[in-house]
Design a protein around this nucleic acid. Structure first.
Lengths: 153, 153
DNA sequence: ATTTTAGTTCTGTAAATTATGAACTAACGG
DNA sequence: CCGTTAGTTCATAATTTACAGAACTAAAAT
């Protein structure tokens, strides 16, 4: 298998998008590759070859992505290699985690509110609103999933 | 005005949290300072002094935060200085932008779907689901705001 | 007119990040 | 037990980032 030009440019595009989310370039490109690859599962060596990177870069990349649960791997009996693939079927959890990473800022916002001067009621009220809204959002998340499922049918 | 120990440690805590969102340390600490400061508006020099950073660091920091619309400034007649403050009253827009930054990945996901082999229907279906769900989320955003407002009353 | 204020911009650099290549390891295959 | 495969680890090189400090600018104050 060889990559088409379209696939290559899309890998770069996805790479940059994911990089902006804070991942290192190689890891971001591995994700891009797994998105466009005709085979959804690729071995360590295939990743190394397609992206023309060193084995150590691949090793670091896949391990980072495994840790952060963006990819996973499967194996086949009689084959020592790991076949890496996107944990795309896991997108519900991934989305939930991203929302949670926003709402967890509420913990420190509550601390802010505690030590803030009471001389600035309007300002403080804004902070309270943010906290309250983010709490509401976390609470509504399961409902959002449920209603989306319903709508689909 | 001088910062208490509590304020100082909270600035660092907020700083680290915001850094994880991809901002550079100084910019993140400026946000932290504006959160805990008794005066919600601070001048360039006050920021420089409180954080013990150079003027160039302050200049870079505030300009970055202005560009990304995390802070804004007001002025007073007869006073040349700018008074910087968090755009906290703008948190609805900020939240919307963060959701949009997630949903904009849909643009590239649609491209992926276009060029993907049709030999992997299950995999492709997962991608379609993500796209559909994210579309649903953007669509539900205004409703979420509205219902939260209602609930508040 | 010159000094002060409120910043900006430029240059250098220290530190952090990211990737390479080579050496290594552990399991398997013959 | 010797070679190969599938990866990991380590030392190091290259690149990027983030900041300091000094020189600079434009407007306002004296």
């Amino acid at each position: 298998m060889v990559l088409t030009e379209k696939q290559k440019t899309l890998i770069e595009k996805i790479g940059i998008a994911i990089e902006h989310e804070g991942l290192q370039p190689v890891a971001a490109r591995i994700i891009g590759l797994l998105y466009v690859s005709d085979k959804p599962e690729l071995t360590f060596d295939e990743i190394t070859a397609f992206l023309r990177i060193s084995k150590s870069a691949t090793s670091n990349g896949v391990n980072l992505l495994l840790q952060t649960e963006r990819i996973e791997y499967i194996t086949f009996s009689g084959d020592r290699r790991r076949y890496f693939r996107l944990k795309i079927s896991d997108w519900r959890n991934a989305f939930t985690r991203r929302i949670e990473s926003m709402t967890k800022f509420n913990v420190v916002l509550r601390e802010v509110l505690e030590i803030r001067t009471k001389e600035t009621p309007e300002y403080n009220k804004n902070i309270e609103e943010v906290i309250d809204f983010m709490d509401y959002v976390s609470e509504q998340m399961p409902i959002l999933f449920r209603e989306w499922e319903n709508k689909r049918k």
